[in-house]
Measured scan of single mutants.
Amino acid sequence: GNIFIKNLHPDIDNKALYDTFSVFGDILSSKIATDENGKSKGFGFVHFEEEGAAKEAIDALNGMLLNGQEIYVAP
């Protein structure tokens, strides 16, 4: 299952995104959108192997604080 994450703190990188979401299941890919200079655009995507893991991550993390910013997590 794919999920979309927005309002990410600029310091959150691909590894931090992966580490945050990997507790919910096996991740096939995770990516933070960046500009041409490699600076985070504040949103990203995680693709879980299983749909159930994606739903669990959405339920658990939507509205949670990550590096002091409330993140939005949705399908």
Rank of each mutant, 00 (worst) to 15 (best):
K31A: 04
H47L: 03
H47V: 01
F48L: 07
F24N: 02
D13L: 05
K55L: 12
F21R: 02
I58M: 12
K31V: 04
A60I: 15
A54P: 04
P75I: 14
A57L: 07
G52P: 10
N7E: 05
T20C: 11
N62R: 14
L65K: 08
Q69D: 13
V23M: 13
G42T: 09
F21P: 02
S22N: 13
S30I: 03
I3R: 00
L8V: 12
K39N: 12
H47P: 00
I3S: 02
A60F: 07
N62H: 13
L17I: 08
L28I: 04
K15R: 14
F24G: 01
D19N: 12
Y18W: 07
A16E: 04
L61I: 15
D11L: 15
Y72F: 10
A57C: 09
F45C: 02
F43M: 06
E49N: 15
L17Y: 03
G42I: 02
G68D: 13
F45A: 02
K39L: 09
Y18Q: 08
I32C: 15
D59V: 10
I3T: 09
N37G: 13
G38V: 08
N7L: 07
D19A: 12
H9C: 12
G63E: 11
L61K: 05
E50K: 14
F4T: 02
G44R: 00
N67G: 11
D11Q: 10
G68N: 13
N62Q: 13
D11K: 06
A74H: 12
E70S: 14
F4Y: 14
K55A: 09
Q69S: 15
T34S: 13
E36P: 12
L65R: 11
Y18G: 05
K41T: 02
G42S: 14
E51H: 07
E51F: 04
G42P: 08
D19Q: 13
G42V: 02
N7Y: 08
M64E: 07
L61A: 06
S22P: 01
E56P: 06
Y18I: 06
L65S: 08
I71R: 01
I27H: 00
D35I: 10
I12P: 01
E36R: 15
K39Q: 11
E70I: 13
K39H: 07
T20L: 05
Y18D: 07
A53D: 13
I27F: 01
I32K: 04
E56K: 08
N37I: 11
N62P: 04
L17Q: 04
I32A: 05
P10Q: 15
P10I: 11
K39P: 04
A53N: 09
T20Y: 04
S22T: 14
G52A: 14
M64P: 03
Y72N: 05
L66V: 14
I27T: 03
N37V: 13
D35A: 14
G52C: 12
H9L: 14
N7H: 11
K31Y: 03
K41W: 03
L61C: 10
P75D: 04
K6C: 03
I71M: 14
L28R: 08
K31T: 04
L28M: 12
N7D: 05
L28P: 03
E36G: 14
S40W: 05
D26S: 12
I32S: 04
D19G: 10
N62T: 14
P75F: 15
N14E: 04
N14Q: 09
A53I: 15
G63W: 04
S22G: 12
F48G: 00
I12N: 02
K39I: 11
I32P: 01
G1E: 05
K6V: 00
D26C: 07
L17T: 05
L66M: 13
K41V: 06
S40Y: 07
S30K: 01
S22I: 09
E50H: 13
Y18H: 13
D26V: 12
E50G: 10
S29R: 03
K55D: 10
K41L: 07
D11S: 11
I58A: 10
N62F: 11
T34R: 08
V46G: 04
F48M: 05
D59C: 09
A33S: 09
F4I: 02
T34I: 11
I5A: 07
N2L: 00
A33F: 03
K6E: 02
A57I: 08
E56G: 09
S22D: 08
E50D: 13
I27A: 02
E50Y: 11
F45H: 06
D35E: 11
A33H: 05
I71V: 14
I71H: 02
K31P: 00
G25Y: 00
G42R: 15
F21Y: 06
V46M: 03
N67F: 08
E49Y: 11
V73D: 03
G52I: 15
L61Y: 05
V73L: 14
I32R: 05
F45W: 07
V23A: 08
K39Y: 08
F24C: 04
I71K: 00
L17S: 02
L66K: 06
N7A: 14
G68F: 08
E70Y: 11
D11T: 08
G42E: 09
S22C: 09
A54I: 04
K6S: 03
E56Y: 10
A74T: 08
K31E: 01
I71T: 09
F48H: 02
K39F: 15
D13A: 05
T34D: 09
G44L: 00
A74L: 04
F24T: 01
N37E: 15
S40I: 04
T34V: 14
F21I: 11
A54C: 06
N14T: 09
D59F: 09
F48C: 03
H47E: 02
G68S: 14
L66A: 09
S29D: 00
S30M: 03
I71N: 02
P75Q: 15
A54H: 05
K55W: 13
A16I: 06
G38K: 08
F21A: 09
Q69N: 15
L66Y: 09
T20A: 14
S30F: 03
F24D: 00
K6A: 04
Y72Q: 06
F24I: 07
A74D: 03
A57V: 13
G68I: 04
N2R: 01
A53P: 11
G25P: 00
S29W: 02
T20I: 06
K41S: 04
A54F: 11
G38R: 14
E51Y: 06
I27R: 00
N7S: 11
A60C: 12
D26F: 14
I3P: 00
V46P: 01
V46I: 08
E50V: 14
G25F: 00
H9I: 13
I12C: 05
I3K: 00
G63V: 04
A57R: 01
N14A: 10
E36H: 14
P75R: 15
V46E: 01
E70A: 12
L28F: 07
N14M: 08
I32V: 11
L65H: 10
Y18T: 04
